[in-house]
């Protein structure tokens, strides 16, 4: 009899555990009542990118004297945090906003680590190829060299407040350099702070 009771109890526990699994939900990205996390989430990248773009637009650094658009190359954005971050989560937002501003166009043919889109150069290997109409092959001297370069760093600092609490600070630092002169035309920094249990991890 006791064995039956134990079996029923075990089944009930297993079933109740199964039932309590949280169902998957889509996040409403326009009205997300966020749950704070120690690591970096999409809202943090959004905030850092928005602040950087607003600051660039205000500074006038991306408004070309006499009109026209600057050509921007993306340089190194160093991830100096304890997390595995794809820095494009930050950079892509900035690129999209700058393109929408009508003041900047980004080159994908030049990057600090080689071309972002290798097809620009690969397509040029078709020169002299008998199978391709040579009038449709990209001509020599058509690519536009960049005027500006965007570089930066994301830094993480962990500070222990007391035995149970820890503070994590994130620094998003960016520079916009005039490639011709090497001078930084614009620089910006966004600082985000998070506090939580020392047991929770920020990576």
């Amino acid at each position: 009899m006791n064995k039956i009771k134990l079996a029923i109890l075990s089944t009930a526990i297993i079933l109740s555990t199964g039932c309590s699994t949280a169902p998957t939900k889509n996040i409403d990205m326009h009205n997300d009542k966020e749950v704070a996390v120690r690591g970096l989430n999409y809202k943090d990248f959004q905030k850092a990118a928005n602040e950087a773009v607003d600051s660039m637009l205000r500074s006038g650094a991306i408004s070309k004297p006499g009109g026209g658009r600057y050509v921007l190359a993306i340089s190194d954005i160093v991830n100096d945090t304890m997390q595995r971050i794809d820095t494009d989560q930050l950079v892509k937002k900035i690129r999209v906003a700058l393109l929408q501003s009508g003041k900047v166009v980004v080159t994908t043919a030049v990057n600090a680590k080689g071309a972002e889109d290798k097809m620009s150069m690969s397509a040029r290997k078709l020169r002299g190829h008998g199978e391709f109409n040579q009038k449709t092959v990209a001509g020599k001297g058509q690519m536009i060299a960049p005027d500006l370069s965007l570089s930066g760093k994301i830094i993480q600092k962990n500070i222990r407040i007391n035995r149970s609490e820890e503070q994590t600070e994130y620094y998003f630092q960016l520079s916009l350099t005039d490639i011709n002169t090497g001078l930084a035309l614009w620089e910006g920094e966004t600082v985000l702070g998070k506090k939580g249990s020392g047991d929770s991890v920020s990576w």
Partner: peptide
């Protein structure tokens, strides 16, 4: 068109004080 359309941005308001925040258009359009 802006990638920030419908995004809410936080700003602080202090007790019994004036508040202000600055905005800038995403495009000259």
């Amino acid at each position: 068109h802006s990638n920030r359309h419908n995004q809410w941005t936080e700003f602080p308001v202090f007790r019994k004080q004036t508040f202000s925040f600055a905005i800038i258009a995403p495009s000259p359009k």
